[in-house]
Computed example of a mutant assay.
Amino acid sequence: MMRILMMSALALVLAGCAGNVVTDYSSTAVFGNYSSWAYAPEAGSSSFLSLDGTRVQAAIERELNRKAMKSVAEADADLFVNWKIIEEDRLDQSGVGLGFGVGTGHFGWALTAPPPVREVKEGKLVIELVDTSTKQVVWRAASRRYLTESQSPETRSELIDEVVTEMFSKYPPGLD
Rank of each mutant, 00 (worst) to 15 (best):
R3C: 06
I4Q: 05
I4L: 13
L5P: 12
M6E: 02
M6C: 09
M6L: 14
M7R: 00
A11R: 03
L12W: 07
V13Y: 01
L14Q: 09
C17A: 13
A18W: 11
N20E: 02
V21F: 14
V21E: 01
Y25A: 15
A29D: 07
A29T: 03
V30W: 04
V30E: 06
V30K: 14
N33T: 05
N33Y: 06
W37K: 05
A38G: 05
Y39C: 01
Y39H: 03
A40H: 12
P41I: 14
A43P: 00
A43F: 07
S45R: 04
S46N: 10
S47A: 06
L49P: 00
L49I: 10
L49G: 03
D52K: 10
D52T: 04
R55K: 12
R55E: 04
R55H: 01
R55A: 07
V56Q: 03
V56L: 05
Q57Y: 02
Q57R: 09
A58M: 10
A58F: 01
A59V: 00
A59F: 03
A59P: 14
E61N: 10
R62D: 02
E63R: 03
E63S: 08
E63C: 05
E63Y: 04
L64K: 11
M69Y: 02
V72K: 00
V72R: 01
D76F: 00
D76M: 04
A77M: 02
A77Q: 07
L79Q: 09
N82Y: 15
N82F: 14
I86D: 13
I86S: 06
E88N: 05
R90L: 06
L91R: 15
Q93F: 10
S94L: 02
G95D: 12
G97C: 01
G97F: 15
L98P: 06
L98E: 03
G99E: 07
G99W: 10
G99H: 09
F100H: 00
V102I: 11
G103A: 12
G105W: 01
H106P: 12
G108I: 04
A110M: 05
A110R: 07
A113Q: 07
V117E: 08
E119S: 11
V120Y: 15
V120Q: 15
V120K: 11
V120E: 15
G123H: 04
L125A: 04
L125Q: 08
V126W: 08
I127G: 07
L129D: 06
S133I: 10
K135E: 14
K135H: 12
W139D: 06
W139A: 12
A141L: 09
A141Q: 04
R144F: 11
R144D: 02
L147M: 11
T148P: 02
S150P: 02
S150D: 13
Q151W: 07
S152N: 08
T155V: 09
T155Q: 10
S157M: 07
S157V: 03
E162C: 07
E162L: 14
V163C: 05
V163M: 12
T165V: 01
E166M: 10
F168V: 05
F168H: 09
S169K: 10
K170D: 05
K170T: 08
P172F: 01
P173C: 11
L175Y: 07
D176Y: 08
D176G: 08
